[in-house]
Design a protein around this nucleic acid. Structure first.
Lengths: 340, 340
DNA sequence: CCAAGGATTGGGAGCGCTCCCGATCCGTGG
DNA sequence: CCACGGATCGGGAGCGCTCCCAATCCTTGG
């Protein structure tokens, strides 16, 4: 099938039109140095007159680079996708990429066929690097990319030791300080609603919860742990369940702000007052956390820095050809509001 | 900066390794006809042994096509992004694209700079066509793409006459039949919560509402119309407002299921029973509509067909070089549940 | 056994750009 | 007025692939 576009002028035509050599035009469009100002102007005029647009395929063939990076989402059920977390990350990545002149391409990988297709796309040189979001425990994609020696940076990690570069947050520390805060507030029956436990981040938060309890000399009880999938609905359900098992609960650490919002509803439905009867802490510090009733104490994740760090790692890897893996763990911070 | 990847084998090397000509290898990897089975096998083996992956830049330079289409989102505030509508569309587009072998790339355009960058990317030939979602009234991007003669298909349209191909739903008809249904149910004070009115779809739904009232010989009152931005929160607010102005409301058509869910909450808070006191109708028929209390009567949009239609139009345009604009209006359907 | 004609193959000619080296220009100091 | 060295330029040599035509290989039918 012929999907060709009508004849766009080529660099050579621009050169002829401006009465200069190809090299000069190339220098101008890449705004390289070493072009006399008058020449640059003449070339620029030719470009404008002809409506010239560089052919990116030719450029990347000759220059051996694509000037694009892919952001891959592998979340099979898309739930993450609707989370504000996602859009904030994308925004911050976009910002961090602005002055590199590279395009950010989002790609969805929902099946093996799509994974394969993407791999061919990436190995075929259409992107210079790959960013991966919300990678689940058994996902082979990161390793396949490493195999192909494509610069790759994960957001979060699949497990404790990961042979790929990643940026992660200090989930353990965040959860720990949140629970310690509950202890300081005098809470004694502290439960937690975790995220999906095949996500390493969720496990880390659970570990932080346990560590804080241990630190306070309190016993960890499995029945005080309920799992959610980060949605408000599942948070509500988990909270209801916990209340049933332990009517005397007086503190809860939720997997995310959204989950916490669900938990708040369940508590309200059960006639508990927050924070008088029960203290609730969220995770993420999304805008939502400010608007719940009462506003949520939560663990802030430095999303803006996440984007910057990911891009920085990726650029470094692109620079030197993926000879080492780097890890960045960003510090989290407890933001105290009225729910505790 | 050197973002080059280590030497990948080239087609020529594969040819040498398999002791055949370049053309033959090319035929094999594009599984074209006219290659003897034994030859094909030999080539395939060489490909596997060398771990060959075609260089897509070279392919698209020589073949004058990119084998990729972009899905552009211009929603400035991302609210749409979190809507299930969005992810369903993406899924259906992905499905429709599966057997064409093309990659679907999502791109975000949030500023003029990003619009410009994307335009260069597209005009530079990195994609064969462009799909645009949720285009707002004054957005110049579709025209810029048309100008560049890039095959383009909109989802929805900016106004009644649009010189670009698009796929849209019969929003007028959907709203009309929804309101007629309310009338049939004996409702007499019927209000509507619209979407953002700079979206043509929202205007069409409003028009359908008005038409149905006129058809029933009822008067249209501006005070029975409230605007929302499709979120649950804004739906709740709009409903509260409407109730204040017209305590005797007995029927509501909401802008979307999400908005309707918000409206339901506001009604509950105001002590109204649904459907006994007030009938509520949503729009979209998302999974959500089944799970509200009570389950929503709603206008179903044929999302799966939307994706298929968009891809079909795009392929047609790519085939023949954008010589005509095509419009497809998909029929909507009222799904009656318990909220009316 | 031979020629005709379809099935396979090989490989030249680009696609449009970047790299880079050698050529050309121009201003300066002697 | 001339040699010299840095600032500018021009354009050959690819980058790795597809297209397409001419060359070669097999089958048939006579």
């Amino acid at each position: 099938m012929g999907r060709r576009r009508p004849g766009t002028p080529t660099l050579e035509e621009v050169a002829a039109h401006a009465r200069v050599g190809r090299g000069t035009v190339s220098r101008v469009i890449n705004n390289a140095t070493g072009v006399k100002e008058s020449t640059r102007l003449a070339v620029q005029r030719a470009i404008d007159e002809l409506g010239y647009v560089p052919n990116l395929a030719a450029r990347s063939l000759a220059g051996r680079r694509a000037d694009a990076v892919a952001l891959v989402m592998t979340e099979p059920d898309w739930r993450q996708f609707a989370e504000p977390f996602f859009s904030e990350i994308v925004t911050s990545l976009g910002d961090a990429l602005t002055d590199t002149g590279m395009q950010l391409l989002l790609t969805l990988v929902r099946s093996d066929a799509e994974r394969q297709r993407f791999l061919e796309y990436a190995r075929g040189g259409r992107v210079d690097g790959v960013l991966l979001m919300s990678v689940h425990a058994g996902d082979p994609l990161p390793d396949m990319l490493a195999e192909a020696r494509l610069p790759t940076v994960l957001l979060g990690r699949r497990s404790g030791d990961e042979y790929v570069s990643y940026v992660d947050m200090d989930n353990v520390g965040g959860a720990r300080s949140a629970v310690s805060h509950l202890v300081q507030r005098g809470r004694r029956v502290i439960a937690t609603i975790t995220g999906p436990l095949d996500l390493h981040a969720a496990q880390c938060r659970l570990r932080g919860y346990e560590e804080a309890l241990a630190l306070a000399g309190m016993k960890v009880e499995r029945t005080r742990v309920a799992e959610s999938d980060f949605t408000a609905e599942s948070g509500r359900r988990a909270m209801a369940e916990l209340l049933e098992r332990h009517p005397d609960i007086d503190g809860v650490l939720a997997a995310s702000d959204t989950t916490a919002a669900g938990a708040l509803e369940a508590l309200r439905a059960a006639g508990r007052r927050v924070p008088e009867d029960v203290s609730v802490i969220g995770f993420d510090d999304f805008p939502l956390a400010r608007r719940t009733e009462p506003p949520l104490t939560t663990v802030r994740q430095p999303i803006e820095e996440v984007g910057q760090a990911m891009i920085r790692l990726l650029l470094e890897e692109m620079e030197e050809g993926a000879v080492a893996w780097r890890h960045v763990i960003l510090r989290t911070e407890l933001v105290v509001r009225e729910s505790t």
